[in-house]
Simulated scan of single mutants.
Amino acid sequence: MCLPGTFGDIYDIEKFVSSLDGVVKVVKSQPSELSTKDLAVLRIPNRVTEEYIANNIEPVFKTKGNVRLATYFPSVNMKRTRTPENEERNSVGCFAMFGSLELQPEVREVVASIVERLKTSSRKSDSEFVAVDLWLEMLDQKGCQGFDKNSAVYLTQSRWDNSLDSLKDLFPKTYRKELIMPMDKKQKFLGSDSSEYEKVIDFYVCSESDVFVLAISGLFYAYVPGKRIGSGKTKIVVRVDSASAGSEPGNYISRYVSKKTHMAYSCFC
């Protein structure tokens, strides 16, 4: 496996390589004897079966000698599976999720500073720190508002928009990255070429919050709960239509938690 160019800017490469010793061979850059022109590029859906690998990947690898795999996600599925084949595959996924990635110190410090500021703001009013994966187009749709007005609310939405004013009226302590990130880090982590940094910061801040609220399903919803479940932070709230949810609070809890369907649960059995 060859690491992408930006990987080392975000994660500790030495930690990653050493943790995978004996599992898979990792190289930091593409070997000089390989030419990108000769590589066969295969688009592979996430979490494929051994049969799929045998039928679609191995024949090309045997013919070409080298392949580049581009993973795509036809659906977001992080549910636990019980077959022997899937249990073995899940064990690799568990290792990748909890045992191989460690942020570079500078990125870790930025995340820690944001999390600490939000937790401090919430503690002052004996409230919770709530992280919301928010898309602006979701604001005109009604959803759950069951939090103390003094809760510190972190939005993954990077830049402020006038449509967010109504949310700030409800929760005055509403923040986004550009307001609470250390000044000397903004140019690097919020610049025009910093989208990968922003995604990583959102992921780790949402993983550390007291409560995580999801506005819409997607890959973020697949991976943040896994990280949270691993650290025991299982307050994960999904946005649902209030009329269909009824009055039961449990209707707002992610099924990943209420039904323990996320594959992360299989990592701690």
Rank of each mutant, 00 (worst) to 15 (best):
R176V: 13
R176C: 13
R176L: 14
K177N: 09
K177M: 12
E178S: 12
E178A: 10
L179K: 11
I180W: 04
I180K: 07
M181W: 04
M181H: 07
M181E: 01
P182L: 04
P182Q: 02
D184Y: 00
D184I: 03
D184W: 01
K185A: 13
K186T: 02
K186H: 01
K186D: 02
K188L: 10
L190A: 15
L190I: 13
L190Y: 10
G191Q: 00
G191H: 02
G191A: 05
G191V: 03
G191Y: 01
S192R: 10
S192E: 11
S192M: 08
D193W: 08
S194K: 06
S194C: 08
S195T: 09
E196K: 13
E196C: 10
E196R: 11
E196S: 14
E196W: 13
E198L: 12
E198M: 13
K199L: 07
K199Q: 11
K199A: 14
V200Y: 00
V200P: 03
I201V: 11
I201K: 04
D202C: 03
F203N: 13
F203G: 14
Y204W: 06
C206A: 06
C206Q: 03
C206K: 06
E208P: 01
S209I: 06
D210E: 08
V211A: 02
V211K: 00
V211C: 02
F212G: 10
F212M: 12
V213F: 08
V213D: 06
V213S: 03
L214A: 15
A215L: 08
S217L: 11
S217P: 12
G218V: 04
G218D: 06
L219T: 14
F220S: 12
F220M: 12
Y221M: 13
Y221F: 15
Y221R: 12
A222W: 12
A222I: 04
A222R: 11
P225E: 04
G226Y: 02
G226L: 03
K227N: 10
K227L: 13
K227S: 14
R228S: 00
G230H: 00
G230I: 01
G230L: 08
K233N: 09
K233C: 06
K233P: 05
T234G: 09
K235C: 12
K235V: 11
I236A: 07
